[in-house]
Design a binder for these strands. Structure first.
Lengths: 104, 104
DNA sequence: CCAACAATATATATTTCAATATATTATCTC
DNA sequence: GAGATAATATATTGAAATATATATTGTTGG
């Protein structure tokens, strides 16, 4: 029979499973950079390509990962596809990371 | 010749490189769980094993990763090795993750 | 149909994971 | 001080996931 501490451990494991999945999604230089861009404004693939100098197929692949993990959503406008951040947790984490690595 | 925006991009890339490395270090369920334990108090391997139910070799391997990435330090006391968190950024991130996944 | 924009496919190299086995270090007992 | 034991670390292996570069395909608008 599970006791209180086992239940707590299950909850911790569940939280850790979700949290570590998000950390892996962000744990790539290119994905992190492009999420930083998207956290400021909605952008299409070409915009991101130009800003970050990441080649298109590579960019599309990373965007595909973020789509799969439901961290971004897309909107097509003619030939262009616009991306935006779809997960509030991402924005919170990006803010923390900004403080740790980009602020004085 | 690099202009201002190139310099900014270099800085961003550097920050993203460091940040994404940290995210990868934390991006594993077992490592995240054991860092959560260590964020509360210094613990030896056996303590962690008992609390989390992770098998010893697996635990030692994950602790080895955290040592390699300089996120924890160790102190030997007789047969036991005590671990503690050595990186303030880890504590900050854990706090944010706690708010996102463990708080109501 | 052609050009622009984006996604997918393919191939290869690398990293990571998980399980098992073995080694190291320190303590204890005789 | 020579084993025996406890605590921890390392090695090994095979499978799975990820990264990276290039090539190809799909979609839309002109």
């Amino acid at each position: 029979m599970p006791d209180t501490s086992d239940l707590q451990l299950d909850k911790m494991r569940d939280a850790a499973s979700q949290a570590s999945a998000l950390l892996r999604s962000l744990g790539n230089q290119d994905r992190l950079l492009l999420l930083c861009q998207l956290s400021q404004e909605e952008l299409c693939v070409g915009d991101i390509e130009e800003r970050l100098g990441i080649h298109q197929p590579s960019l599309s692949q990373q965007l595909g990962v973020l789509r799969r993990d439901r961290l971004v959503t897309t909107r097509r406008e003619g030939k262009r596809v616009y991306y935006q951040v779809a997960d509030a947790k991402v924005l919170t984490l990006l803010q923390t990371l900004y403080q740790l690595y980009c602020a004085e």
